[in-house]
Design a protein around this nucleic acid. Structure first.
Length: 409
RNA sequence: GCGAUUGUAGCUCAGUUGGUUAGAGCGCCGGUUUGUGGUACCGGAGGUCGCGGGUUCAAACCCCGUCAAUCGCCCCA
């Protein structure tokens, strides 16, 4: 009587009907494209020891302290629901000896969990597709990965209005020098920056570059560029990536303000961005993370990868109209229910999609079936001279189904 | 963590300056009509107006709190 129905957990979603079909379409397209590029499928655990993520992300960041779903299991072990794929795959590469397969191209997809405030295209349980190349130091790996991403977006039909923003963070030395120059630059005008950016100056100065505040934008425009600090090796690497993209016919735009917060990122950083999703414009993002394996206690191992939110891709794809049923069997007289059951089963076994309508007022069942939108109808009714089957719909399909189930159309 | 907006039937929404028994469309259930037929009509079920206080003779409506959703900020692996 007074039992309260449990409400869904904040930030979770129940995906249904056309939206669920759009979701499935994204995953199916990803699976197909990933095979074209010969990326191998991996299935990963949904949870890991907390260190897998805390070591790779850095112990002190907000990300680790506030935005992970962590809990203790019965043995007192701290575990965490995966907030990303990369760290878990890197762990598996080390613990499962996948080095023997290097360079290893893998792809996966599934749910991820982040304790964040939900908003458009952002949920606490969300879903990503993911692709990684581990053990490949060459810029060709970056190019292949980006070409695959580009092809995926094209095949999903959402490439229009989506642009590939590309940047390089250089190697570790380049990056450190650039960072120091940025801090110096912004410290000079600290009082004129937004409150948020004054904080960022201490915690995460690179983030000032993509501040949305007008007060910051003026100073971002003439901030020092990474290019001035790139070693010649880093310049060569980036030139190879852009050259490869041009050769592959992948359009890109240089975005010198595109950064990554974590130190393990090196060289290539990229995001496919759209203006059609409000504040959550990044549709697919990734980069080269040559420094990650060492933070997990492994040997220096170059790697590059990307991930994309399935929900966001599905929103761009748009709700998919559900395919109509090939046939609908209508039982207009309850005496014919067994016959209707036999017929609908036969149709399905013959490989046609079919629905059975046999409930509610018999007189209204036919209308209900028509509204259901099936391509053909088989209506069973009891007349003066016994049971009759009336049909309606696409003549060719009626004939094929009729033949398959041994019933003349 | 912060801000804005929104919470009325299963869904989409009306609801006047606060005023009697809170409505419509769709959907659902039943009946009549039609009988190769997506029609039309009649009827029915379904709401503690998110929740809790307050103001008032009287609150869906005004005030406070709270919860939730949406969008944005922060953050973004």
């Amino acid at each position: 009587m007074s039992i309260k129905t449990p409400q869904p957990v904040r930030g979770t979603q129940d995906i249904f009907g056309p939206e669920a079909d759009a979701f499935a379409h994204v995953v199916e397209t990803f699976e197909r494209v990933r095979r074209l590029y010969r990326f191998r499928r991996v299935e990963m655990p949904v949870f890991e020891r907390t260190e897998v993520f805390s070591r790779s992300l850095g112990e002190t960041t907000d990300v680790v302290s506030k935005e992970m779903y962590s809990f203790e299991d019965r043995g007192g072990e701290s575990l965490t629901l995966r907030p990303e794929f990369t760290a878990g795959i890197a762990r598996a590469f080390l613990t499962d000896g996948w080095k023997q397969y290097a360079p290893l191209k893998v792809a996966t997809h599934g749910p991820l969990f982040r304790y964040e405030r939900p908003q458009k295209g952002r949920y606490r349980q969300f879903h990503q597709i993911d692709a990684e190349v581990i053990g490949a130091a060459e810029p060709q790996a970056d190019v292949e990965l980006l070409a695959m991403a580009d092809q995926l977006l094209c095949e999903l039909g959402i490439a229009d209005g989506v642009t590939l923003n590309l940047n390089t963070l250089g190697d570790a030395d380049s990056r450190d020098a650039w960072r120091a120059a940025l801090v110096e630059h912004f410290r000079g005008v600290k009082d004129e920056l937004s409150e948020d950016s004054q904080e960022r100056l201490e915690k995460n100065p690179l983030r000032i570059l993509d501040s949305k505040d007008e007060r910051d934008r003026r100073f971002v425009a003439d901030a020092p560029q990474i290019d001035r600090f790139l070693s010649s090796e880093a310049q060569d690497f980036f030139a190879s990536v852009t050259g490869g993209l041009d050769a592959a016919g992948v359009a890109w735009t240089r975005n010198a303000a595109l950064v990554r917060g974590l130190d393990y990122y090196r060289h290539t950083a990229f995001e496919f961005v759209t203006d059609r999703l409000g504040a959550q414009g990044t549709v697919l993002g990734g980069g080269r993370y040559d420094g990650l394996m060492e933070s997990l206690g492994g040997p220096a191992t170059p790697a590059v990868g990307w991930a994309a939110g399935i929900e966001r891709l599905a929103m761009l794809v748009g709700a998919q109209a559900e395919a109509p049923s090939d046939a609908c069997v209508v039982v207009e007289d309850d005496a014919l229910l067994t016959r209707g059951t036999a017929m609908v089963t036969a149709i399905r076994r013959a490989g046609f999609t079919a629905e059975l309508v046999a409930t509610g007022s018999p007189r209204k069942r036919f209308d209900k079936a028509v509204k259901g939108g099936a391509l053909t109808l088989f209506a069973l009714s009891q007349g003066e001279d016994g049971a009759t089957v009336r049909t309606k719909g696409d003549a060719d399909l009626l004939a094929r189904i009729g033949q398959a189930i041994g019933h003349p159309a």
